[in-house]
């Protein structure tokens, strides 16, 4: 499985998702590094981050990076963790506004309706603070017999997710690791649906087929990955919304970039067909020039044959 850290993609700086002019990176991807095999935290040198940003013409991001806490040239891990947690708390707010957990619940309930009573495991890949999983647990949205699991490479985020779940007495669990590595999220044969939100745009288009192939190898019953429907309206909306509502400069920067980096449905579908052809993938985008306000996040889905 390709690690989703340090996703690199080339896009046109203007309006996004047009081909090939500059390469853009999200700060949250660059400032944390984890060894995918051991899960160990790797030191990140500030000058490496700045060089990478400067090479992509991301001067503003480089300026933001220069303000991050550094010790001996290396980003201070605890401070970066605290920053990541704050950024993801703000991100959760965006998820709330977009009614993301409800949308996920709606899809899962519809999917489950054809398999009533069957025990189910829902694995949220790259769960961050586990907003979706914790919401599903808090509102018992999927009914009994559902094992809710959040998995993220970032130990600080899943650690906080687990604390938050405990603070509210929620029945869900969190694991630090690569969700798509065999055995990480459980391999006891239980029917498993893999979901994610805001993750796909962290992957390069060339890494996407392997992302879907990994789920096929795990024999998941279905997948549903929500991400931004890209387009000029989405990018403009993301800019205004992040200016108005987000406090962290990093959130503002990455939030707008996420909209620009998001993959169109055609790319996601082609990747899903390449990686998991027998899952009958589905994903639809609205017309590019018409704002699709109620479907800013839309899923690419697939169900096992």
């Amino acid at each position: 499985m390709t690690s989703i850290r340090n996703g690199r993609e080339t896009f046109c700086g203007f309006l996004g998702a047009l081909p090939m002019m500059i390469s853009v990176e999200e700060l949250t991807d660059l400032i944390v590094a984890t060894d995918p095999a051991s899960g160990a935290r790797l030191p990140v040198r500030l000058d490496t981050v700045i060089a990478q940003l400067t090479a992509g013409g991301q001067d503003r991001a480089a300026r933001l990076a220069r303000r991050l806490p550094v010790r001996d040239g290396v980003l201070v891990a605890e401070e970066i963790d605290a920053l990541q947690i704050r950024v993801h708390c703000e991100l959760q707010r965006l998820g709330e506004e977009l009614q993301l957990p409800r949308r996920v619940a709606e899809w899962l309930l519809r999917w489950r309706a054809a398999r009533p009573g069957e025990p189910l495991r829902v694995v949220d890949v790259g769960c961050g603070l586990g907003h979706v999983v914790r919401w599903l647990a808090a509102y018992d949205a999927l009914g009994p017999g559902v094992d809710l699991v959040g998995v993220d490479l970032n130990r600080a985020l899943v650690g906080r997710a687990a604390e938050l779940a405990a603070a509210e007495g929620l029945d869900c669990r969190f694991i630090a690791g690569d969700a798509l590595a065999p055995g990480v999220a459980g391999d006891d044969g239980m029917t498993t649906v893999v979901i994610s939100s805001g993750l796909l745009h962290h992957l390069t288009a060339s890494a996407l087929p392997e992302f879907f192939a990994a789920q096929r190898r795990l024999r998941v019953a279905a997948f549903a990955h929500w991400d931004i429907d890209p387009g000029p309206w989405t990018t403009a909306g993301a800019w205004i919304f992040h200016r108005a509502r987000m406090r962290e400069p990093v959130s503002r920067h990455d939030g707008v970039l996420s909209a620009r980096r998001a993959h169109p449905a055609s790319v996601l579908l082609a990747a899903a067909r390449a990686g998991a052809p027998d899952y009958r993938p589905a994903c639809t985008d609205g017309p590019r020039w018409w704002p699709r306000l109620s479907e800013v996040l839309r899923p690419v889905t697939g169900t096992a044959p």
Partner: peptide, 18 residues
């Protein structure tokens, strides 16, 4: 309803905060 609620945010509340 929850499905359309975001319209209020996207069209008015977000831009007006800005």
């Amino acid at each position: 309803g929850w499905r359309r609620r975001f319209l209020a945010t996207a069209l008015i509340l977000g831009p007006f905060t800005f």
